[in-house]
C-alpha cells in the first residue's frame, strides 16, 4: 500500500510541469525512503531524475516498493482539476492498475477524488557514475532560464565556457551572435568553483526544456567536466531534487 499526502497541489503541478516536456510517460518508483523517477527523453540525449524524500510529504506510507507507470499528459489533466492550495493525497494498492488522487480544499469543505489508470511501462534504468565536476556553478534559476531563452534566438547550439573568473554562454548563428558572461557576485548569487576550465557545446532546446523546473527552486546548480554530460540540478527545498543530464555536442 502506498499513500502520500502533500499540503499543496501546486508543488506537484510544478514537478509534473518540470517533467512533461521531456517525458510522455514514466515510472515513479516508491519505497519507504521516498519516491524516485529516472527516464531519458525519446532521443536518448537527455535524462531527468526526480528524487523526493519521504519527509517531504505531510504523510507518507509505503509498506512495500511499488512502481507506478504514469502518463504525464493524463496526470496533468487531473491536476488541472485541483486548486493549487488544495491538499493532495496519492494512493495506490499493491499491484494496483490505477492510482487514486484525492484533493481537499484548504477549508476542507470540498473533496474530489480521481482515479488514473496506470501503465505497464518497460523502463530501463541507467547507472549514473559519480562524477567529479571540474566546474560547479550556482546561480539564480531565473537567470539561467533567461539566458537559455535569450540564446535560443540565435542558434540551436549553446557553448558554455567556464573559467576561474566567469561563466560565458554563447550562441552563434546566421542572424548574429550572443555572448553572456556572469562573474561571481559579492552577494553570492552566482558562485563558481573551478578546478579546470571547461568549454562544452549543447543543444539549446534541451536546456530550455530543463528550465521548466524554474518555479521549483530559487537556485540552480550546473556541473561541467570535459567529455561528460552536463548536470543541471534544481533542489526541491531540502528534501530532494530534479536533476537533468544532457549529452554534449562534439566536433566532427
Amino acid at each position: 500500500m502506498f499513500e502520500a499526502r502533500l499540503s499543496s497541489t501546486l508543488t506537484l503541478k510544478k514537478i509534473v510541469d518540470a517533467l512533461r516536456d521531456i517525458l510522455n510517460q514514466s515510472t515513479l518508483d516508491c519505497s519507504d525512503t521516498g519516491i524516485q523517477l529516472q527516464a531519458m527523453d525519446n532521443s536518448h540525449v537527455s535524462l531527468v531524475c526526480l528524487c523526493l524524500r519521504s519527509d517531504y510529504f505531510e504523510k507518507y506510507k509505503c509498506s512495500r516498493n511499488v512502481s507506478l507507470g504514469l502518463d504525464l499528459k493524463s496526470l496533468t489533466k487531473v491536476l488541472k482539476c485541483a486548486n493549487g492550495d488544495d491538499a493532495v493525497t496519492i494512493k495506490a494498492a499493491d499491484k494496483a492498475d490505477k492510482i487514486e488522487l484525492s484533493f481537499e480544499s484548504a477549508g476542507k469543505e470540498r473533496t474530489a477524488d480521481y482515479e488514473l489508470r496506470l501503465l505497464n511501462l518497460d523502463q530501463e534504468h541507467l547507472a549514473i557514475p559519480e562524477t567529479e565536476y571540474s566546474c560547479v556553478i550556482h546561480m539564480p534559476a531565473s537567470e539561467f532560464a533567461r539566458i537559455c531563452r535569450d540564446l535560443a534566438v540565435f542558434s540551436e547550439s549553446v557553448v558554455i565556457a567556464c573559467s576561474k573568473n566567469c561563466i560565458k554562454f554563447s550562441a552563434n548563428g546566421e542572424m548574429g551572435s550572443a555572448n553572456i558572461k556572469l562573474s561571481q557576485t559579492s552577494k553570492a548569487e552566482v558562485t563558481l568553483q573551478v578546478d579546470e576550465p571547461v568549454t562544452l557545446s549543447f543543444a539549446g532546446r534541451y536546456l530550455n526544456t530543463f528550465t521548466r523546473a524554474t518555479p521549483l527552486s530559487e537556485k540552480v546548480k550546473i556541473g561541467m567536466a570535459a567529455d561528460v554530460p552536463l548536470l543541471v540540478e534544481y533542489p526541491i527545498e531540502d528534501y530532494g531534487y530534479i536533476r537533468y543530464y544532457l549529452a554534449p555536442k562534439v566536433d566532427d
Binding site: H44, L126, A127, K249, D252
Partner: peptide, 14 residues
C-alpha cells in the same frame, strides 16, 4: 559541424 552524442555512451543500463 557538430554531432549530438547520445547519453547511452556515458551511462550504462543496469
Amino acid at each position: 559541424s557538430q554531432t549530438q552524442v547520445r547519453l547511452d555512451s556515458f551511462f550504462k543500463a543496469l
